Amino acid sequence: MYEILILVLIGIDQTTKYLVKTRLATGESISVIGGIFNLTYVENRGAAFGMLQNMKGFFVAVAIVVAIAGIVYIHRSRAKAQTSRKASSLAKINRLSVASIIAGAIGNLIDRVWLGYVVDFFDFRFIWSYVFNFADILVVLGTIVLCISVFLAGEDVD
């Protein structure tokens, strides 16, 4: 189930990036909500906020490690839940969170390997303009939910 979820999320990520690449020129922006939200095609060769520019090898290695560690965690956690016959809700939330993080990491990994950069396009302009993509949302939300879950459990859930 988690593997299918990961594939679906990667598919959504790659589809949205393909649509942006084929419909917008680099740097082109379309206003969706005047002055607040735009679709802006950016080729990001770094990480969040454009930090660590041109460190492709580092990002590829991190994404591979995250994906492998996440898959191992999901399988071990699921196996443990099946043998103990009591799968806690928090353990399921943790597995979903990790699946989200894996999908986001792989979505951006695909871009880095095939394109040499990550396609970003969600452009919210509040105090500053930060452009990101669906994979970034998956990683951030997955991480936040996982942290909250672990905090609420008060211990290692699995």
Rank of each mutant, 00 (worst) to 15 (best):
N54V: 06
A48T: 04
N38P: 09
V72G: 08
G34L: 05
G34T: 14
R78H: 13
K86I: 13
G57Q: 10
S29I: 04
A67R: 02
M55N: 06
A63C: 01
T15I: 13
K92H: 11
K86R: 13
A25P: 14
F49E: 01
I64E: 04
S97A: 14
G57H: 01
G46Q: 01
V65R: 04
R78Q: 15
S89R: 11
R95N: 10
I68H: 05
G50P: 06
G35P: 00
G46S: 03
S29A: 10
K92W: 12
A48Y: 03
S88E: 13
I64Q: 07
R95Y: 08
S84E: 15
V62F: 05
V20W: 01
Q82N: 13
A48K: 08
T40V: 14
A25M: 15
Q82S: 14
S88G: 12
I74H: 04
F49L: 10
L39F: 13
I68Y: 11
F49Y: 10
Y18F: 15
M51D: 05
S97E: 02
F37L: 15
S84N: 15
A69S: 10
N44D: 00
F49P: 00
G46V: 03
H75C: 12
G50Q: 07
R23W: 12
N54Y: 07
I64T: 03
G50D: 04
Y41N: 05
K80V: 03
A91F: 01
L19G: 13
Y73P: 01
T16M: 10
T26M: 11
F37D: 04
R95W: 02
I64N: 09
A81G: 02
I74M: 06
K80E: 15
V42A: 11
N94F: 09
A61H: 01
I93N: 03
G70Q: 01
G50H: 07
K17E: 10
A81T: 06
R45N: 06
T26N: 13
T40I: 09
G57R: 03
S31R: 07
S31G: 14
R85T: 14
G35K: 10
L19D: 07
Q53T: 10
K56M: 05
I64M: 08
A63P: 08
T15M: 14
H75Y: 11
R85F: 12
I64V: 09
Y18I: 10
F59M: 02
A81I: 04
K17L: 04
M55V: 06
R78T: 15
V20Y: 01
I68D: 07
S29N: 01
F37V: 11
A63Y: 00
G70F: 02
